[in-house]
């Protein structure tokens, strides 16, 4: 199964892993979960939609990253997954 990871667990960053899956699954853990989990999930959904991906699992471990950081980490994780042979 192909997978890709990007990011760090430093504050203001997030570590994101994507892997091939039967359907779409998103798991979020975040230090600001109660305040921003909907927003983080929306960024992930929107980015997957733009990339045309439906059958992936995304695991996001967020340490207070802003939206653009989440998106950048996710895109890198996706490209690393796709590079995998």
């Amino acid at each position: 199964m192909k997978r890709g990871t990007a990011g760090t667990l430093e504050s203001n960053d997030a570590m994101i892993m994507v892997k091939e899956s039967d359907g779409l699954k998103i798991t979020i853990t975040s230090i600001v979960y109660d305040f921003f989990h909907e927003q983080i999930e929306n960024v992930i959904r929107e980015t997957l939609k733009e990339e045309g991906l439906t059958n992936v699992e995304v695991i996001c471990n967020d340490k207070g990253a802003l939206d653009y950081t989440i998106k950048a980490r996710l895109l890198t994780a996706i490209s690393r997954m796709e590079e995998e042979k």
Partner: peptide, 8 residues
């Protein structure tokens, strides 16, 4: 203070 700390 910083305006934002770890997304907050």
């Amino acid at each position: 203070t910083n305006l934002i700390k770890s997304h907050m």
